[in-house]
Amino acid sequence: MYKILFNLVFRKMDPEKAHHLGFFWIRLAASVPGLRQLVKLVLAPQDRALRTTALGLDLPGPFGLGAGFDKNAVGVDGLSMLGFDFVEIGTVTGEPQPGNPLPRLFRLVEDRALINRMGFNNQGSARVAARLAARPHTSSTPVIGVNIGKTKVVEEADAIADYVKSTQRLAAHADYLVVNVSSPNTPGLRNLQAVSHLGPLLAAVREAADQATPYHVPLLVKIAPDLADEDIDAVAELALELHLDGIIATNTTIGRGGLLAPADRVEAIGMGGLSGAPLKERSLEVLKRLRKRTEGRLTLVSVGGIETADDAWERITAGADLVQGYSAFIYEGPFWMRKVHKGLGAHLRASGFRTIAEAVGTKA
């Protein structure tokens, strides 16, 4: 049903407008008394065998929605209703910003991929923090990660202060924090992945988070798939040295190799980060390298090209404690998580493991 809707309606719409329309429907359904519980019962039936613990958090399963879909924490309940085991909001910057000029989101349907140059469009850390603070907390409240990035107009030399500002505002409302230094759509941002810059940045964010809360907020860093292998190793060593809680691998890529879409159309789209199925191979390579370097001492979250339960299970057995998706959600629709959970449950039972945690890294 969704694929018919996608081909007849969404595919013919501007991708960003289609996103806003679909997200509006999700939020609307979640706002209707009783409807959210009914939809969740249908789309997200609980398989207790999939429950897992990571980052010190109890989760209904290992599969979350990656950052970028809900930039301002306006639809967390609706996304949880669809079955995501946790939701990462953002990227949130210190100050509000409109992002890059339109158009800035493009589909490569042949490749089941997206290209975006959104530019961290968001309402800013103060407003997002206020929204999160106003949320009621109950036993059914979804786990929320908060992804923070650099405000575009802030100079690279002042980046640490900008990240610290967001941390001070958001740490108390986050189940975990992610430092995003790997989006290709903010000038100079990826320079912060160099260990000489990244070390002081992460240390400052860790200190700010500790001062903002009386408890430990897990801190992760999100890296690009385009890093050279030796740089991935260096980030892993730094994360261990600074006692980070984890690494998210990977963000979008600036590469365009191996695409099915016509080269002239891809060239006409221009700059931006590529996500979706073409990222599958490299994202898995980075995960395996990180697992080898960290030997289970960090929580690894794998994202990039994960479309099916088979993909998710492959990442888990390769060393991912948690997995995330985003682009496949656009192509698969609201029943996607139901299919993934059903498939993961089948994999778990066939493997003989009792829990997802037992399966992590068994084929590393």
Results as ranks from 00 to 15, higher is better:
Leu8Phe: 11
Val9Tyr: 09
Pro15Arg: 10
His19Tyr: 05
His20Leu: 15
Ile26Trp: 03
Arg27Ile: 02
Ala30Gln: 09
Val32Ala: 10
Lys40Phe: 00
Pro45Lys: 05
Thr53Glu: 11
Leu57Pro: 04
Gly61Lys: 07
Pro62Ser: 02
Phe63Tyr: 14
Leu65Thr: 06
Gly68Met: 02
Asp70Gly: 04
Val76Glu: 03
Val76Gly: 04
Asp85Ser: 13
Phe86Trp: 06
Ile89Lys: 08
Pro96Thr: 05
Pro98Asn: 04
Asn100Arg: 08
Arg104Thr: 04
Phe106Leu: 09
Leu108Met: 07
Glu110Trp: 08
Gly119Ser: 06
Asn122Trp: 09
Gly124Asn: 12
Ala129Trp: 12
Ala130Trp: 07
Ala130Leu: 13
Pro136Ala: 13
Pro142Leu: 13
Ile144Tyr: 10
Val146His: 12
Asn147Pro: 10
Ile148Tyr: 09
Ile148Phe: 07
Gly149Arg: 08
Lys150Val: 04
Glu155Ser: 15
Ala159Asn: 03
Asp162Gly: 02
Ser166Phe: 05
Ala171Glu: 08
Val178Phe: 11
Val179Tyr: 10
Pro184Leu: 04
Asn191Glu: 15
Ala194Thr: 12
Val195Arg: 15
Leu201Cys: 08
Leu201Ser: 10
Gln211Thr: 10
Pro214Thr: 06
Tyr215Lys: 12
His216Gly: 01
Pro218Asn: 04
Pro218Gln: 02
Lys222Gln: 01
Ile223Val: 15
Ala228Cys: 03
Asp231Met: 11
Leu238Pro: 08
Asn251His: 04
Thr253Tyr: 05
Thr253Val: 07
Thr253Gln: 02
Gly255Thr: 14
Asp264Leu: 02
Arg265Gln: 14
Gly270Trp: 04
Gly272Val: 08
Leu274Gly: 00
Ala277His: 14
Leu284Asp: 14
Leu284Ser: 14
Glu285Ser: 13
Glu285Thr: 14
Glu285Lys: 14
Val286Arg: 14
Leu287Arg: 10
Leu287Thr: 06
Arg289Ala: 11
Lys292Gln: 15
Thr294Phe: 01
Glu295Gln: 14
Arg297Ile: 01
Thr299Lys: 00
Leu300Phe: 01
Ser302Met: 04
Glu307Ser: 14
Thr308Leu: 08
Ala309Tyr: 05
Ala312Pro: 04
Trp313Gly: 09
Trp313Tyr: 11
Gly319His: 12
Gln324Arg: 11
Gly325Tyr: 09
Tyr331Cys: 04
Tyr331Thr: 00
Pro334Leu: 05
Arg338Val: 06
Val340Gln: 08
Val340Phe: 05
Val340Cys: 10
Arg349Ser: 15
Ile356Glu: 01
Ile356His: 01
Ile356Asn: 01
Ala357His: 10
Ala357Tyr: 05
Ala359Trp: 08
Gly361Ser: 13
Lys363Cys: 13
